[in-house]
């Protein structure tokens, strides 16, 4: 997976610039931050994730914050 958004991984959380519905900067909670890191490191795909983690990953795809394809 890849993203065109700028992001910051600091103080235990991932922050995605313009990642919110109105272009706000969003902070992912600890669990969501883990999912984000794993997706971008290509350790896992959204389909392999279950429950709320899977829902979260799919929502990132729907909103276009994450895009299919390898990160560069």
């Amino acid at each position: 997976m890849r993203t065109t958004h700028r992001w910051l991984d600091e103080a235990g959380h991932v922050y995605v610039a313009e990642g919110g519905p109105q272009g706000q900067c969003v902070r992912l909670n600890a669990a969501a931050s883990k999912v984000w890191r794993a997706l971008l490191a290509e350790q896992i795909t959204p389909d392999e994730l279950e429950g709320s983690d899977g829902e979260f990953a799919r929502s990132l795809l729907v909103t276009g914050v994450l895009l299919p394809g390898p990160s560069d």
Binding site: L8, E18, G23, C25
Partner: peptide, 15 residues
């Protein structure tokens, strides 16, 4: 307004 300057500012404020 969107784009790199806003994104940079948002992350810098977090930092």
């Amino acid at each position: 307004r969107t784009g790199d300057r806003l994104a940079q500012l948002q992350l810098d404020l977090v930092a």
